[in-house]
C-alpha cells in the first residue's frame, strides 16, 4: 500500500485516496472543432508510461481535494506531489 503525501493533509495510506489516471490531459476548448480521431485521442489514448508517470489522485476520505503525483510505475516510488494548477516539478519530467 502506497504512502501518499496529500499536499493539504500530509502523508496518508493509499486506501484514503482515489486514483484519477494520467494528469495534464486538457479538455479541448472546442470539442466540436475536432474530428473523431482527434476527439478519440483525447478521450481514449493514454501514455501508459514505464517510469515517472504524472497522475491524478483525490483524497476521497480526507480533504476531498484532487492533486497530482509523479509516481514511478516500476518501483511505485513517489517522486513528487504537487497541486492542481502547479507545474510538474523537475522530478516529474525525468524520463521524458
Amino acid at each position: 500500500m502506497l504512502l501518499i503525501e496529500c499536499p493539504w493533509c500530509g502523508p496518508r495510506d493509499e486506501q484514503e485516496f482515489g486514483y484519477g489516471g494520467e494528469a495534464h490531459i486538457v479538455r479541448p476548448a472546442d470539442p466540436h472543432a475536432l474530428d473523431d480521431a482527434a476527439w478519440g485521442e483525447y478521450l481514449f489514448m493514454r501514455t501508459n508510461r514505464k517510469g515517472a508517470h504524472r497522475e491524478r489522485w483525490v483524497h476521497s476520505e480526507g480533504c476531498r481535494r484532487w492533486f497530482n503525483v509523479v509516481r514511478d510505475t516500476v518501483s511505485h516510488e513517489i517522486l513528487a506531489v504537487y497541486r492542481v494548477g502547479e507545474a510538474p516539478p523537475a522530478a516529474g519530467r525525468r524520463g521524458e
Binding site: G18, G20, V58, R65, W66
Partner: peptide
C-alpha cells in the same frame, strides 16, 4: 459528488 468535484477542481478551477 466525486464527478462534480473532479471537473470543478481539475478542469474548471
Amino acid at each position: 459528488l466525486a464527478w462534480l468535484e473532479e471537473w470543478r477542481q481539475t478542469e474548471w478551477p
